[in-house]
Design a protein around this nucleic acid. Structure first.
Lengths: 336, 336
DNA sequence: TTGAAAGCGCTAACAA
DNA sequence: TTGTTAGCGCTTTCAA
């Protein structure tokens, strides 16, 4: 049965025999653990390089009770998964994992179905898990806690003792909003996504906090959460315009690009007729005309950081409960 | 060291001891291979269900020389990876793999750098590979052939003996173009992407073949390949319009949505001022106004098919060298 | 500094 | 029908 596709599958035993030494010596030479003669080590190292020997991580893993795999959990609904954010994040995770000779196993979850993640974890296929996003009612987190698998979340959560890597969305949204207020804008509308996503709630709070601080009024009529489809965005935009909004605050790149498209269709000019800003910048917006005021984060950095943190946990190194990565406010012509 | 996160990590030996039988009997009960008493099997099965025992695939794999992992190879350049196509395809692969208790390992390649794929394959981390797309000058394919790992490609290639799953882009593009010609369109322009991608060349050929068959002229001045950025698309569109094109044929969803955006910016109406069609439909286009004439494929089906084919190969079942999945021509208002 | 041997959790001859 | 045993390829005591 087995799968012998690499015919010259050379094992540690082959190396040991060829060199007339024991397997354990070869193992020591490679791992650097334990004492070993300098000359012996060099002999082994040069032999394996020449013969292109690579230790089999499956066997290594079995003996060490490791898998050398990390599970990257991404949302399965394609409206989400197509966002550049997840791609970038994952790229960071892949890079950081590769550096430690680890690989990434895909875990696909839906808002209400984490069976795929469960299969992977309960099958012992991974040493740890990185959650790509957090929900308010997140099935994954309690499951991961209960299963005792080490994990870190990208995003924030109220669950206790969860290691979190996030950008400081509250501070960022607060800051961007404050700046726009100082520039004289008084009537805002907020177009937001799924309020079951922690990040969306946080952004809303940062936004509202700035308004409150600067004593700018807003009613619930100008806050449009749960805009999941283009139609939702369209409706929100229409209402906001009717209500006299001066500036549309879009909660993320997807919503902002839908809003821009809607405004273009209606031949409403930015920024002359309406100003617009986004709480998340990405290539969906970056080559728009006019340029869009937005908050800039580095999702790849988030992925790298999450993965490195997970390795620290796996290695028994103490880590911070919550790391907040920085952001940048980019003021562009859409709010001039 | 090891990673004992599941405290109640129950092994086949525990099960055997608890039941007062041997490991091999338990193994047989689970796998169904070999002879075993009906009563014994049921005793085992009910015990493992109750105690939630799951065989460790790492150990199983070591003993069978299998990994129970498949490598999904996706392009790393984010302009590509963000396309819904790859997400959908991968979703299909994940589903089909899960059904066989297999998992998906991410392999990220760049046009000129397949080191990540090499690491995964040479480390024996996967039983097979699924290539998400094919290039004209594809480093991955010769590498995979040489390494002797079983693989299937989504897309077409001229390399010999490669198992390929594809949509019939030539036929589809030929058909769509022919229909538009019959509707009276005489002046076409083609806006296309990277000509190092096999699919882009094939689409161009299908398009040109229809023109030739129906004796419609086109010059190289109206064929714009390698439009990789929005600026490229913009320039191509401008030139095509200046040359008097009646209909812009866009090679994929990304290019088409860039073209539409450009036309909107310039306040050029579809289909009054210019008609437009896409050789690939996706949600990037599907809720556009006006609706867009396009070819519809099912990328998830492609992924499922590729994965099932790979399993056939792994199981020594003979497979077809090349499978062509169907498509649908959707005539909408953009070409009225 | 090195080697022998046991063990990681499972499968698969081979015996009984 | 079931048990015993020998691996799969590696790490890690324990001896030498």
């Amino acid at each position: 049965m087995g799968n012998e596709y690499i015919e010259d599958k050379v094992t540690i035993e082959d190396v040991a025999n060829a060199l007339g030494i024991s397997k354990s010596t070869v193992s020591r030479a490679i791992s650097g653990k334990g004492r070993i003669g300098k000359e012996t080590r060099e002999r082994v190292l040069s032999y394996i390089k020449e013969h292109n020997y690579k230790p089999n991580p499956i066997a290594k893993g079995l003996s060490e009770s490791k898998t050398y795999n990390i599970c990257w959990v991404a949302p399965g609904d394609s409206s989400m998964t197509a966002l550049p954010f997840f791609q970038r994040c994952m790229a960071g995770v892949v890079d950081a994992a590769s550096a430690e000779n680890y690989d990434i196993l895909m875990g696909v979850v839906y808002d209400d179905n984490i069976s795929h993640l469960k299969r992977i974890v309960s099958n012992h296929k991974v040493d740890g898990v990185i959650l790509g996003r957090t929900l308010i009612n997140d099935e994954s987190i309690p499951y991961l806690i209960e299963s005792k698998v080490p994990f870190v979340a990208i995003g924030s959560t109220d669950y206790k003792d969860v290691v979190q890597i996030d950008n400081d969305h509250f501070k960022a949204c607060n800051e961007l909003t404050s700046i726009l207020i100082m520039k004289g804008i008084k009537r805002f509308a907020l177009i937001g996504g799924d309020s079951n996503h922690v990040v969306n709630r946080t952004r809303r709070e940062g936004f509202l906090h700035a308004l409150k601080e600067q004593k700018i009024d807003i009613t619930d009529d100008d806050i449009f959460m749960n805009c999941l489809s283009d139609e939702d965005v369209e409706r929100a935009t229409d209402t906001a315009l009717r209500n006299g909004a001066e500036c549309l605050m879009c909660m993320d790149d997807g919503i902002c690009s839908a809003t821009i498209a809607k405004l273009k269709r209606d031949e409403i000019s930015i920024p002359e007729d309406i100003k617009i800003a986004s709480f998340y910048n990405s290539e969906l917006l970056s080559n728009n005309q006019p340029t869009i005021t937005a908050l800039q984060y580095d999702p790849k950095e988030l992925g790298i950081n999450a993965c490195k943190t997970l390795f620290d946990i796996l290695n028994g190194i103490e880590v911070e409960q919550k790391v907040m990565l920085s952001y940048e406010v980019q003021l562009k012509s859409s709010t001039q």
